[in-house]
């Protein structure tokens, strides 16, 4: 490229950019060379990360599954349903009243004693 041509372009450019003033020098300096904590945070927030999708996705899937299982396990502890160990029935046998389970356990222990 010839020098005159270069100069011409330069002049044209200067002419066109004559309206534009660069006033954000301080701003840019803050971004590139943060001095106080606010600038540092902002710089950090705007930092770009490159994340590997596959391992991350697997991990979060595992996390969700674990959460679900925990919920399932925890639920019956606080809200029992289904077969109950507390379900007790009062029965009358031989003039006395017993809890059915206690009575049956005791009878079973002595069952067979009388079989001849």
């Amino acid at each position: 490229m010839r020098k005159t041509e270069q100069l011409l372009i330069k002049r044209t450019l200067e002419q066109e950019l004559s309206e534009i003033r660069f006033t954000q020098a301080a701003e840019v300096l803050r971004a590139t060379h943060p001095r106080n904590w606010r600038d540092r945070v902002r710089a950090f927030l705007n930092k770009e990360l490159e994340l590997p999708l596959v391992p991350l996705g697997t991990a979060s899937l595992f996390f969700l599954a674990a959460l679900f299982v925990y919920h399932l396990v925890e639920q019956p502890k606080t809200h029992p349903g289904g077969p109950q160990q507390h379900l007790r029935e009062l029965i009358e046998e031989g003039g006395s009243y017993y809890w059915k389970d206690e009575y049956e356990r005791k009878v079973n222990r002595h069952e067979g004693d009388h079989q001849s």
């Binding site: 003039g95 006395s96 009243y97 017993y98 809890w99 206690e102 009575y103 005791k106």
Partner: peptide, 21 residues
């Protein structure tokens, strides 16, 4: 009396049953 509420393992006592053969 011997008959009454016998609820709880420590209250159940001897069962009043027998066979006569």
């Amino acid at each position: 009396r011997s008959d009454g509420y016998r609820v709880g393992n420590d209250k159940i006592g001897n069962l009043p049953f027998f066979y006569l053969k």
